[in-house]
Amino acid sequence: MRIGLYPGTFDPITLGHVDIIERAMALVDRLVIGVAVNKDKRPLFDLDERVAMVTRECASIAEKTGGEILVHPFDNLLIHCARDVGAGVIIRGLRAVADFEYEFQMVGMNRAMDASIETVFMMADAQRQAIASRLVKEIARLGGDVSRFVTDDVRTELLERLR
């Protein structure tokens, strides 16, 4: 069984994340969405809320693709999380060159710790490349319309949280 790990903070999950998840399902038999604690980012939603949000958003993707998606919170090294879930591949979404520079360093460090786990980069769909959770939160916080960047359910949760 080909198991992939798609890690992130998902604060909140965006349509850019959904695009990568849908496309990653074509590469693996089971996709584990690793929801990172990442206290350095000071998330708007707590871990349990983000796990629930990702689980809900992924249910229809799993149904549509016929694949298996699991949501797994983690607070350890990414490479340790990959081992914990049996992943042979880590899937990372790229939006721009700046993403690549950071990810390039991460791949080098991860390979030094476990060369048996590959990393696959997926470019975000052209219509989704500008979407970043940080920017979605800022737009919502300042009264902008985020409906082009997140699902209706996520939009509702985001607006309720920012009230």
Rank of each mutant, 00 (worst) to 15 (best):
C58D: 03
E160Q: 08
R134W: 10
M106G: 10
S116F: 00
F10C: 05
I20Q: 05
Q105E: 15
G93L: 06
F45C: 14
A130S: 15
F10S: 05
V18S: 05
L5E: 10
R23L: 03
P43W: 04
V85N: 02
V51R: 01
R148H: 13
G143A: 03
A140K: 05
K39N: 14
M122R: 02
I131T: 06
V18D: 06
F100C: 09
R128M: 15
R83H: 10
I131M: 04
F149C: 12
L70G: 06
R2H: 01
V71T: 07
L162H: 06
A98I: 11
D114N: 13
R111H: 15
K41R: 15
F100H: 07
I3K: 09
D125C: 06
R161Q: 09
F149S: 12
H80P: 00
R161D: 02
I69L: 04
E118F: 00
T9K: 07
E22P: 03
M1K: 07
A36Q: 09
A87N: 07
I131V: 13
C81Q: 14
L135N: 13
L5K: 00
V150C: 05
R42K: 15
L27R: 03
R83N: 10
G67N: 08
N110C: 07
L162F: 05
R141V: 10
A96H: 13
R134G: 15
E63L: 13
E157S: 13
R92M: 01
I117V: 15
V32A: 01
Q127N: 12
E22M: 10
L27A: 10
M113S: 07
A126N: 12
I21P: 04
L158T: 04
R161I: 01
I20L: 13
T55E: 14
D145S: 10
T55V: 03
V136W: 03
I33Q: 04
A98T: 15
L31T: 04
K39P: 15
E63M: 11
Y6Q: 08
E49I: 04
D114W: 02
M122N: 08
R148K: 15
D48L: 02
D153E: 12
T119A: 05
L158C: 03
M1V: 08
M123T: 11
E103S: 09
E57Q: 14
A26G: 12
F121I: 01
R134N: 14
V32C: 05
K41I: 09
F104C: 08
G4M: 04
D84H: 00
E101P: 08
L159H: 08
F74W: 07
I3H: 00
I117Y: 00
A98G: 13
C58W: 02
A112K: 14
V35E: 00
L77F: 09
H72A: 06
V85G: 02
D152M: 06
K41E: 08
Y102M: 12
F45P: 15
V107C: 13
A124G: 14
F121V: 02
V97M: 14
M53G: 05
V37C: 07
M25D: 03
R161E: 08
H72K: 05
E101H: 05
L77R: 06
L158G: 03
S116K: 02
G8A: 04
N38V: 07
D84W: 00
N76M: 10
A98S: 15
V85L: 00
